[in-house]
Nucleic acid binder design. Structure first.
Length: 945
RNA sequence: GGGCGUGUAGCUCAGUUGGGAGAGCGCCUCGUUCGCAACGAGGAGGCCGCCGGUUCGAGCCCGGCCACGUCCA
């Protein structure tokens, strides 16, 4: 990790002074909020729909960690998979780039323009206007004195300079160049950049792609990180800054056909436009600042951090502290927004990235001696700054503070434990340094890595402590250990392979689609067998007794989806009197196509007319549990908060399981409240409504979506449980393809049976309903009655009666222990009579009856004490085994070892043993040899003494 | 998904080739005090995470599982 040294160039004292220089005079000094508003207003006036920023957690895209561009939410529109009622849109999108492919985390704070959280302004054309119009808009907004009014002489324009794409040689985008010239760009300021890296954009290996065109701004020599006095455009020293990227989606790249090395490039019938301009950069330019951190978007945050840390003097601030302030400002924004969008710190995925951001901010807060709690105080400043544009921030105020404080506490605990370990690690190093002060000892890289890897101690803390102690860290060794960790993780990842659907289905899906009839009942008549698939692939017929999968044109068998398990049932002939196959389940091998897992009871052929019957009792149970799941989801959000988001679900006939994001265990009082609320809705016997609508309208109406699921673009199914007494007019509304009861009353009763954690920040609740819940109550009550009966108590008195019993048992146990001790004591007294002397040492060897190891130990203890000086050996038979114990008084342990003695004796009873010099135990199997073994102690000691 | 680490009294933790479950803080009772803090004396409180194996004997060794922490992906 590059440390503060890396920032010396851009943040030198001379550099700090330069921040005050105004780069140019604009018409007015626009605030960041005004820059954002003006952008949206410009495009709104030109027929664009102003679309709200989507969540930082991408909805339908599991490949993407966080939303990182304005076009993310329009991806399906560009792909033609989704229709909207507008063709022009504009947005200001919140974005995070940290972790994953675009990772700016390490750079933040040390440069002028890297952020983990930033806002991207953009305008979009979905098959409407194209290059000419997009370029004209961009030029007008940027240069017109009615708008941003940036002087033309500060700007450069790049266009795609040609390259080979999938085997096709694409020429220079002279079209774009012409349009720039037409709107006033000087010819010598239009630069063609060849290659795919800078000015060609693609959504993926296939799909839409096309050339880009970018606007650059010349910040002047003062902005050069390398103190260039007179470098030309194209220099990457920081002087020339990209402010707006226009993407022209012009082609559709098709998948490579087998045998052909590359896919082909087809022109899109309706070319589209996607643009992106970083708000922070625009604000910096319009406010005449070189660094984004000097704009009014960051200044209030930096000042707040400074104020919190009691560091008012800007002048005397060193470069490291400046960088820390910038990092804190940036990370506070990222953390506040991520938590508001439902991300919770954890040890994997998105949550882990958030944790890293928070902890990195805390490391720098620590450098500045920040007070605690720190980040929740910063979140207040973030909210004040951003709530106008993102009103949702205010909804989550208390939760954001709570999550941040909790994570801060957790981090403190981790660091404290880590520092303790570090002290243990460096103690010997300090000792050697004392002996030989000339050389400074080195902490081995692998040891430091272990502190970081296992105990989570940040490297900065390690280096700080070492520096204070005059020690060095073996950084190369540390990096090496880190590299090994990476390769291990990567190697294990390769083992995962995605099971792809039987290729037969992909082909079928082009021709057929299964009509889902399961919403209307459990029977579907006059269905046609469209395909039969076995392990060998698609076949025309199967014999009786064969296991196979079949595809029908319609079916009443619910197919596993959205957590609800599949129906089981039977496949009947046309007359519905003969069961021709058992249906064991059904699933979607590809979208829209249902495969039934069957075992044939008769011969089956493609084209046969059949009927499907689902098991009605099983279906009924599934429906109850599914509707109950919706009720519980709503109740969880009502009681725990709207941060509760479904992260998994199982709807089975015998129970339901629901995973959701929540930062703590659900308390029993909350659990009771949840049960009560759900059961109340059940008793209201509400009629459930299902509507088909497009996804936008559904989400706009407040329907919840499960992000792990993929929803169709247009006709989504919305399941509503209405409730007039609820402020929203409904109790629950969710996007859902499952089957539900007609009225909530059918659920009967809802009971939670388990609550646990599945991962950090994720809780799991299991519950039962209807007949299953009744059975559970009956079983529990039967047990309770039986228990009460055994104690001769009423059910209400069961607990106090049990408490009394336990108390009594304890008292008796204690009494018994006392008696045993007494008995052992008196037995010991008698044994004292059998003491013999061997060469002046007193020896006591005896067999004790009915003594456990515990009592043997106690006896041997008291005997040793009474003897004053000598050897005690006791033996006893217990459960057919021999227990031996030997004790030697302290004054004799130099000459005699109890362990050795007991070992000798144990051999004779078919066992072994050992122990400490003063006390040893052994065991054996031959109880008949106890006597002789005990007698052998005397000659043995005679030898040893 | 993979690696490393940790689960012992209410809390923080110690427990050394496998052989008597401990400390500090907290809690209760008594004493001292007008009372509190402090102090003194006594006491309660443990399936040593769970399951299996090795062993005469496992908190300790081996295997599996669970929970938590942490890093990598």
């Amino acid at each position: 990790m590059p440390h503060f040294g890396a920032i010396s160039a851009p943040l030198s004292t001379a550099g700090a002074a330069r921040f005050q220089i105004r780069l140019h005079e604009t018409k007015e000094n626009l605030t960041g909020n005004e820059v954002r508003k003006m952008f949206l207003k410009f495009f709104e006036e030109r027929g664009h729909r102003v679309v709200r920023s989507s969540s930082l957690v991408p909805t339908n895209d599991p490949t993407l960690l966080f939303t990182n561009a304005g076009m993310n939410q329009f991806k399906d529109v560009f792909l033609g998979l989704e229709q909207r009622d507008y063709k022009r849109a504009t947005s200001c999108q919140k974005c995070v780039r940290a972790g994953g492919k675009h990772n700016d985390l390490e750079n933040v704070g040390f440069t002028n323009r890297h952020h983990t959280f930033f806002e991207m302004l953009g305008n979009f054309s979905f098959g409407d206007y194209f290059k000419e119009q997009a370029i004209a808009y961009a030029m007008e907004l940027v240069t017109s004195t009615n708008w941003y009014g940036i002087p033309l002489e500060k700007l450069y324009f790049t266009v795609f300079g040609g390259a080979e794409v999938s085997g096709t040689q694409l020429p220079v985008d002279s079209e774009a160049a012409t349009y720039w010239e037409k709107v006033g760009a000087p010819k010598d300021r239009i630069i063609a950049v060849p290659g795919l890296k800078e000015n060609f954009w693609a959504m993926g290996d296939t799909g839409p792609c096309g050339p880009c065109s970018e606007i650059y701004y010349d910040m002047g020599a003062a902005a050069s990180d390398q103190d260039h006095a007179d470098c030309k455009f194209g220099c990457d020293c920081g002087r020339y800054v990209e402010i707006w990227n226009l993407v022209f989606m012009q082609f559709n790249r098709l998948p490579a056909v087998t045998g052909d090395a590359s896919g082909t490039l087809d022109p899109l019938p309706k070319p589209s436009v996607d643009t992106g301009a970083g708000l922070e950069r625009l604000a910096a330019i319009l406010q005449g600042k070189i660094s984004n951190f000097d704009t009014d978007l960051f200044k209030p945050l930096i000042n707040k951090a400074k104020w919190l840390c009691g560091k008012e003097d800007v002048e005397g601030m060193d470069t490291a502290s400046l960088a820390s302030l910038r990092i804190i400002a940036d990370h506070s924004r990222a953390a506040t927004f991520l938590i508001s969008d439902g991300v919770i710190p954890s040890n994997e995925g998105r949550g882990y990235v958030l944790r890293k951001i928070i902890r990195r901010a805390l490391v720098h807060a620590n450098d500045l001696k920040a007070p605690r709690p720190f980040l929740s105080a910063m979140a207040v400043a973030v909210r004040a700054q951003m709530k106008e544009a993102y009103p949702e921030l205010e909804e989550h105020t208390t939760r954001v503070a709570r999550v941040l404080d909790e994570e801060e506490d957790r981090f403190t605990r981790t660091v404290d434990a880590g520092l303790k370990k570090l002290d243990e690690e460096i103690a010997p190093l300090i000792a050697t340094e004392r002996k030989n002060p000339a050389e400074s000892p080195v902490l081995a890289g692998d040891k430091a890595f272990k502190l970081y890897d296992t105990y989570g101690l940040p490297v900065d803390f390690i280096t700080d402590v070492l520096r204070d102690q005059g020690l060095r860290l073996d950084m190369a060794g540390f990096d090496h250990a880190m590299e090994e960790q990476r390769t291990r993780a990567k190697a294990s990842w390769k083992g995962v392979h995605k099971e792809s659907a039987n290729p037969a289905y992909a082909k079928l899906a082009e021709t057929y689609k299964t009509e889902p009839d399961f919403y209307f009942g459990t029977a579907a008549r006059d269905c046609r067998i469209e395909a039969i698939v076995t392990k060998q692939g698609s076949v025309n017929e199967i014999k009786k007794g064969t296991e196979a999968e079949i595809v029908l044109d319609r079916t009443s068998i619910y197919s596993e989806s959205g957590g609800q398990v599949a129906d089981t049932g039977g496949l009947y002939d046309k007359s519905e009197s003969l069961e021709v196959a058992e249906i064991r389940g059904a699933y979607y091998p590809v979208t829209g196509l249902i495969a039934h897992r069957i075992v044939a009871k008769e011969d089956l052929h493609v084209g046969d007319r059949v009927a499907t019957f689902a098991d009605p009792a099983r279906r009924e149970r599934n429906m109850r549990n599914h509707t109950a799941t919706h009720l519980m989801n709503a109740a969880l959000r009502n009681i725990l908060g709207t941060h509760v988001k479904q992260s998994g679900s199982l709807v089975a006939p015998d129970h339901l399981r629901f995973d959701f994001s929540h930062f703590a265990a659900v308390e029993s009082s909350e659990m009771i409240e949840i049960e009560q609320q759900v059961n109340e809705e059940i008793r209201k016997d509400l009629e459930i409504r299902t509507d088909i609508m497009n996804i936008d309208d559904a989400l706009a109406s407040g329907a919840l979506a499960f992000f792990g699921d993929k929803y169709p673009e247009a006709n989504v199914r919305v399941v509503t449980i209405p409730d007039d007494s609820s402020p929203l007019g409904f109790f629950s509304k969710e996007l859902c393809g499952g089957t539900h009861v007609v009225r909530t009353g059918a659920i009967g009763v809802f009971k939670i049976v388990a609550e646990q954690s599945t991962a950090a920040g994720v809780r799991r609740i299991e519950a039962i309903t209807g007949d299953r819940a009744l059975a559970e109550y009956q079983r529990a009550l039967t047990t309770l009655r039986a228990a009460a009966g055994m104690l001769n108590a009423s059910e209400a008195q069961l607990i106090p009666a049990l408490e009394r019993q336990i108390e009594q048992i304890k008292a008796l146990e204690k009494q018994l222990e006392g008696l045993k001790r007494k008995a052992a004591g008196s037995q010991a007294e008698e044994l004292l009579d059998s003491v013999r002397e061997i060469k002046g040492t007193r020896v006591l060897a005896a067999q004790v009856t009915g003594a456990s190891r515990e009592t043997l130990r106690e006896m041997v203890d008291s005997l040793r004490e009474k003897l004053g000086s000598g050897v005690v050996v006791l033996a006893s038979a217990e459960d057919g085994k021999v227990a031996l114990i030997a004790a030697v008084t302290k004054d004799l342990t130099q000459k005699l070892h109890a362990g050795k003695i007991v070992q000798e004796l144990a051999k004779q009873v078919g066992g072994s043993g050992g122990g400490k010099p003063d006390l040893a135990e052994a065991g054996g199997k031959d109880t008949s040899a106890i006597e002789s073994a005990l007698r052998s102690i005397y000659p043995l000691l005679d030898r040893l003494l």
